[in-house]
């Protein structure tokens, strides 16, 4: 079996994860497994000290130090390097700024990257509309990429938002 990430080397590491009754399997070559942080201790021992989780996930190989320390959140001014060290995110704008680092991290912690729970009732319409717009774009992309499961989730999300909007 070939590695699911690079698709080139033989997969020698096999991971199985059970979160909320859902089983996820990953087959990786050693190099990709190490890059993704699966061989670091924090993956095997769920210590949940977040600094180790963040650190464990984004090994230096993946994020060049210079980038992590240069890009600053426009709102709070922190760099991802600082956030990683402390294990605490700076402000709500950091989520957007450091999306590329945080989304994989959220995926690893929760096994999901999309919120399905409640939303503030007072969420402003314009924001909702913006969101719908964004989702539509993602939906288009998903269809282009033939990711139909993802597309179905997006479609439902858009329908839900539209329904909320018309209420």
């Amino acid at each position: 079996m070939l590695c699911q990430i690079c698709g080139k080397r033989e997969a020698t590491f096999h991971f199985k994860e059970v979160i909320n009754d859902k089983i996820r399997e990953l087959h990786l070559c050693e190099e990709c497994a190490r890059k993704k942080g699966f061989l670091s201790e924090s993956f095997f021992i769920p210590s949940f000290s977040l600094s180790s989780l963040i650190g464990g996930f984004t090994g230096e190989a993946e994020i060049p130090f210079s980038i992590a320390s240069q890009v600053q959140c426009p709102h709070c001014g922190l760099t991802y390097e600082q956030i990683r060290e402390k294990g605490k995110i700076g402000c709500s704008f950091c989520y957007q700024t450091f999306k590329d680092y945080l989304v994989p991290l959220l995926e690893r912690i929760h096994g999901h990257t999309r919120h399905l729970g409640k939303a503030p009732r007072g969420l402003k319409m314009s924001e909702k509309e913006k969101e719908i717009h964004k989702l539509r774009k993602e939906l288009e992309d998903a269809v282009k990429q033939e990711e139909y499961e993802k597309a179905a989730v997006l479609r439902d999300k858009i329908r839900k938002l539209e329904k909320e909007k018309s209420e």
Binding site: F48, L50, L53, G87, I89, T113, H115, L123
Partner: peptide, 13 residues
């Protein structure tokens, strides 16, 4: 709050 990630918290957990 973001409709993608829900309520935004200091710790990603």
């Amino acid at each position: 709050f973001s409709s993608q990630w829900g309520y935004l918290t200091a710790c990603p957990t």
